[in-house]
Amino acid sequence: MTVDVFEEIADERRALAEQLAGLTPQQRAARSLCRAWSVHDVVAHLVMPLEVSTPRLVLAVLAAGGRFDRASERVTRRLARRPFAELVEVLAREAGSRFTPPGAGPQAPLVDVLVHGLDIRWPLGLHRDVPAPRLQEALTFLATAPAGLVPKGALTGLRLEADDVGFAHGSGPVVRGTAQALLLAGTGRSAALDSLTGEGAPVLRRRIAPG
C-alpha cells in the first residue's frame, strides 16, 4: 500500500489539535519530554513551519550565528507568547501545509509531528492509536535518517523491532518495543527506555542516557 505522506502529516496534525483542545491550563503548562519546553512551547514549535516563511527562518538562522537549533528556539519562544487556543487553531487550520525542510522530504515533518506529539502525550499519560503505516513510514525514515535527527551513533549496529507494527531494521543486538517507544528512544528521549527490551536496549540506554 502506497502511503501519501503529506496526507498522513495533515491527519496527524488534526488529530493532535483535537486532543490538545481539551487540555486543562495545568496540562498546557506541564513539562514535555522536549528539553525544557512546556506543552505550550512544543505546540508553538509545531506551528513554526506553518506560520514562519522560509525567508524569515533563514534570517533567524543568520541572526543566530548560523545555528538552526538556536534560531528555532528563539522563534518558538516568540510564538509561545500567543494564546494556546490560537496556536491549536493554527495547527488544525494549516494541517495540510506541504512545507518540508530544505533538503528533506515529507518524512521529516511526519517524524516531527509524531515525536512532538509524543513529547506532549507521554508525560501527560495521554494515548493515541496512530495508524500502523504512518508509524512504519516514520520508523523507516528514522532508521536511515540524516545526521541531526538521531543522536550521533545512537542506532549504529543495532536492530530495531517494533512489536506492535510490522517493522524491523538493521542488524546486531535487538532493541524491541512499541513503535512509539522506538520513535522516542531513537530521537534521544530517555523516557521510553524502560519499556524497551532486547540485548540492544542497554546499549541504546548507555548511548542516549549515560550515567
Results as ranks from 00 to 15, higher is better:
1 M>D: 07
1 M>P: 12
2 T>P: 11
6 F>Y: 11
7 E>P: 08
9 I>K: 00
11 D>K: 06
15 A>L: 12
16 L>S: 07
16 L>Q: 05
17 A>I: 09
19 Q>D: 15
20 L>T: 03
21 A>R: 09
26 Q>I: 13
29 A>G: 07
29 A>C: 05
31 R>F: 13
32 S>E: 06
33 L>F: 09
34 C>A: 09
36 A>F: 07
36 A>T: 12
38 S>C: 08
39 V>D: 05
40 H>K: 03
41 D>A: 08
43 V>H: 00
43 V>Y: 00
45 H>G: 14
45 H>C: 15
45 H>A: 15
46 L>G: 03
46 L>V: 14
46 L>K: 02
48 M>T: 15
48 M>Y: 10
53 S>G: 09
57 L>C: 14
58 V>G: 02
59 L>W: 03
63 A>V: 12
63 A>E: 09
63 A>I: 12
67 R>D: 11
68 F>L: 09
73 E>D: 08
74 R>M: 06
80 A>P: 14
83 P>Y: 05
85 A>P: 07
85 A>E: 11
94 E>M: 04
95 A>Y: 01
96 G>C: 10
97 S>E: 02
99 F>D: 04
99 F>Y: 06
99 F>E: 07
102 P>N: 08
103 G>A: 13
104 A>I: 10
106 P>E: 02
106 P>Y: 01
107 Q>E: 13
109 P>R: 00
109 P>C: 03
110 L>T: 07
112 D>P: 04
116 H>P: 13
118 L>C: 13
119 D>K: 01
126 L>R: 07
129 D>P: 14
132 A>L: 02
133 P>F: 04
134 R>S: 09
136 Q>W: 12
144 T>F: 10
145 A>H: 13
146 P>V: 14
150 V>M: 10
153 G>A: 08
156 T>Y: 00
157 G>T: 02
157 G>H: 00
167 F>R: 08
170 G>I: 06
174 V>L: 10
174 V>E: 08
180 Q>W: 03
181 A>P: 09
182 L>G: 04
183 L>R: 00
184 L>C: 13
184 L>W: 01
186 G>E: 01
190 S>D: 09
190 S>I: 12
193 L>W: 09
193 L>E: 08
194 D>C: 05
195 S>H: 05
196 L>G: 08
199 E>Y: 03
200 G>V: 10
200 G>Q: 01
207 R>N: 14
208 I>T: 10
209 A>I: 06
210 P>W: 08
